[in-house]
Simulated scan of single mutants.
Amino acid sequence: MSRTVSPQSPSPEPAYERWAYSFHLPHSPRSVRVARLALRAVLDGHGMTELADTAVLLTSEMVTNSYRYAPDGPTRVRVRGLAESRLRVSVWDSNPVIPTPFDQPPSSCAHGTVAARAAEAATEETHGRGLLLVQLCADDWGGYAYGQHPSGTGSTGKFLWYELAHRCGPYGIAA
């Protein structure tokens, strides 16, 4: 019997590969370096090297905060390709406190507020600029509580996340 194969209708999904990676990191200062190396390897492997420097910087800041402010547990990093040129990185830790302004949607934070925080951070302080870097460099960012059960059972904590997108130059599409 002979079979005929007809062309399939175009898929509504874009023709990019969907992917996600998770890293479970122990509570150790070395985990920050491991997260940077693993993230760079993932982005290089998926052809997203143009986002690597910014993503590594922002992830390093978020994992460092996790190490500093959630001393009783590990850190988890999740990296996902959202679109052909868009990336989301989420960092989970066991501390349920979502730092300001990650407890609000990015659209609710006026650019002037971020600029004012940047000016304030330009003082002689040696810490406290990590999440400000995320706000200034990411295309989108936020945070949400995880697993807070009224009964007190189950794991708790928070996710802080950011997204980056590759931007073509004015002639990038025509090239």
Rank of each mutant, 00 (worst) to 15 (best):
V114R: 08
F102R: 01
E61L: 13
V34Y: 05
E124A: 10
H127Q: 14
W161H: 04
H166W: 12
D140H: 10
L25G: 09
I173C: 12
V42D: 10
A118Y: 03
L164E: 12
E124L: 12
A35I: 05
S28C: 11
R117V: 10
W19M: 08
R3Y: 05
G73P: 01
V89I: 12
E163G: 00
H127K: 13
L43D: 09
E125I: 08
V63E: 04
T113F: 05
P74N: 14
S60Y: 02
T153P: 01
R18E: 10
R167A: 13
G154R: 04
H111V: 11
C109E: 11
Q148F: 15
S2K: 08
L57F: 06
Q8A: 13
L132P: 02
Y162L: 14
R68C: 04
H111T: 13
S66F: 04
A110M: 03
R18Q: 11
S31I: 06
R33F: 10
V97G: 09
W19I: 09
D72H: 14
T123A: 15
S11M: 03
G147Y: 02
P105W: 04
M1L: 12
R167V: 14
A20H: 13
W161T: 00
G147S: 06
W141S: 06
V79N: 07
V79C: 10
T113D: 13
T156E: 09
P101T: 07
V114E: 04
G128S: 05
Y69P: 03
A165N: 05
E125K: 07
T123D: 15
L43A: 01
S22A: 14
P106R: 07
M48Y: 02
L43K: 02
V63Q: 04
V97K: 04
W141D: 03
G154D: 04
D140A: 15
S9A: 12
A118L: 06
A83N: 07
D103K: 07
D93A: 00
G169N: 14
A70M: 03
L131D: 06
W92G: 01
V89A: 01
A165Y: 00
R167C: 15
G142L: 03
L87T: 05
